[in-house]
Amino acid sequence: MYDFIKDPSIYNFVRGPLVWIAFLVFIGGSIYKIREMVLLAKKEKVVYPYMDLKLSLRSLLHWLIPFNSRNWRLRPVVTTVTFLFHIGLVILPVFLLAHNVLIYESWGISWWTLSEGLSDIMAMIVIGCCIFFALRRIFAPEVRFVTFADDYLILAIAFLPFITGFLAYHQWLLPHKIMVILHMIFGSLMLITIPFTRLGHMLYFFLTRAYMGSDQGYRHSKDW
């Protein structure tokens, strides 16, 4: 097994085509899913007539600020964890030095990067948040009641790229090269699954909030 993974052709495949496929599926799939939902919503009599750009943005902005909404304030721990988790999840991969180096090697472009120390802390935060979410699923009764295997699965899909990336950076547990290959596989898996699982909440968040913000704003009330 080790020999198989260590084979350079595996590394080359994962680093090249697999990452390409992952990005294409992620971007293509996202556009497809959003388009499908927008067209589906058009068939409803009462969605489009109420949509309002200003009210939608008002609602989106309000909910993207921590502790701004009543429910964010009522649950300070969950709110803190949710925001730290998602900030790490989105910012870290984009501004990681190692990712930038790869992109520079391929295309000769790069952008602003996080320091290695900060990246390490952010990775630990994301990993810690995943563990918190898992514990919440086990111990909070209202969450446990609606938790099924797929909920752990999508949590694991978000968790694996970060834990493997973290271990690869520190060169722990498995030889560096193997860990990097695993990291790339899990990273690709996450990108590919985002549009087609409930990880797609990243996409629909903007649609469902816009709808509720418009629907409530139209009645001169707020949705927070």
């Binding site: 939902m37 589906l40 919503a41 068939k43 409803e44 969605v47 429910n71 009522l74 649950r75 969950v78 909070a140 209202e142 969450v143 009641f145 609606v146 938790t147 099924f148 909920d151 409930r198 797609g200 909440h201 629909y204 968040f205 649609l207 469902t208 709808y211």
Partner: peptide
């Protein structure tokens, strides 16, 4: 006429924050 119940079903992350 499915957008209004399919979008929530495909989005809901089962966080139970709505319970409060």
């Amino acid at each position: 006429n499915a957008a209004r119940f399919m979008a929530p079903l495909e989005t809901c992350i089962h966080c139970a924050l709505c319970s409060t």
